[in-house]
C-alpha cells in the first residue's frame, strides 16, 4: 500500500523546519523559498497550514505535460518530475488545480514534492507531528482526494 503525507494543521507551530529540510534535501541549501512544502499563516500567525502535493490520482500535472517529463513512481505513488526531460513550459503549473507544482526560475524547470523517494524529510523534520507519513487510506488524505474530484464535477448549487 502507498503511504502519504498526513497533515494536521492543528499541530503546526509554523517553525518552518519542514521547509528547511525540503530545501536541503532537494536543493542542498537551507532556504524556505526553495521548499516544495509551504507553510501558510492565517490570523496573524495564530493558525498555520503546511501545504504540498497530495499525489492526487487525477495527476493533472502528469497528463498536461507535453513531453512526458512527469511520471508515476510505482513504489511510492509520487508523481515525479524528470529534470532532464522537463523543458520548462510551465503548462503543469496552470493545469494543477492545487497549485503544488511550481516553476523554479533558477533552473528553468518545475519542482514538486516527490516524497523524497519514500522517506519524506519534511515529516522527519517536523518536531510536533503535524506532518507524518502514513498508510494512504488512513485519514484526512481522503478528504483531499474528495476535493480533487470536485474539480471534475458541476456545482451542486
Amino acid at each position: 500500500m502507498h503511504k502519504s503525507l498526513l497533515i494536521d494543521p492543528e499541530k503546526c507551530t509554523s517553525c518552518l523546519q519542514c521547509e528547511m529540510a525540503c530545501s536541503f534535501e532537494h536543493e542542498g541549501v537551507f532556504n524556505p523559498a526553495k521548499s516544495r512544502i509551504k507553510i501558510f499563516e492565517f490570523e496573524h500567525g495564530r493558525r498555520a497550514i503546511p501545504y504540498t502535493c497530495t499525489q492526487c490520482a487525477e495527476a493533472w500535472c502528469l497528463y498536461a505535460c507535453p513531453v512526458e517529463a512527469i511520471s508515476l513512481n510505482m513504489e511510492t505513488g509520487a508523481k515525479e518530475v524528470a529534470e532532464d526531460v522537463c523543458v520548462g513550459c510551465k503548462v503543469c503549473t496552470i493545469a494543477c488545480p492545487f497549485g503544488t507544482i511550481n516553476y523554479n526560475q533558477d533552473t528553468g524547470k518545475v519542482i514538486k514534492c516527490d516524497l523524497c523517494g519514500g522517506d519524506p524529510q519534511c515529516a522527519a523534520a517536523c518536531p510536533t507531528g503535524a506532518i507524518t507519513y502514513v498508510d494512504a487510506d488512513w485519514t484526512g488524505y481522503d478528504r483531499m482526494r474528495e476535493w480533487a474530484q470536485k474539480t471534475h464535477s458541476q456545482p451542486s448549487a
Binding site: K90, T93, I94, C96, P97, G99, N102, W147, A157
Partner: peptide, 17 residues
C-alpha cells in the same frame, strides 16, 4: 507570479464560493 498559480484554476473550475 509563478508560485501556486494553479489554485486559480482550482478556484474557477470547482466554482468555489
Amino acid at each position: 507570479l509563478t508560485q501556486h498559480v494553479g489554485v486559480i484554476r482550482g478556484l474557477i473550475q470547482t466554482r468555489v464560493r
